[in-house]
Amino acid sequence: MHHDLQRRRWRTWALLMLMTLLAMASGALHRGELPWWGLTLVIGASLIKAQQILANYLDLRIAPSAWRGGLLIMVGVMGLCLAAAGLLPRWLAMD
């Protein structure tokens, strides 16, 4: 049980590192405006990382489902703001 939990923590850490490195590479490749795929990658990686921290660092996977859902919604709202920061200027420029 203890070892399973530790393995889960290390697996989560490895995934978080990978997602961060991918986002960093995307940012380093483009100094100007990010292309659509880069923007999608950065936002997707950030949301996956946030979900992993909630579930496997904060241990919310064993909390009541209402809390899990509530916190995921809160992080989702922050993710929506992140997406809006990237997408709104593009949409406004298209009009």
Partner: peptide, 22 residues
């Protein structure tokens, strides 16, 4: 640890917001 993970969580979203989403 719960507080420390909240600090992690906020940075994970703050980093792309300020540095990467362009």
């Amino acid at each position: 640890a719960a507080f420390w993970h909240m600090v992690d969580l906020v940075w994970v979203l703050l980093y792309p917001l300020l540095y990467l989403v362009r």
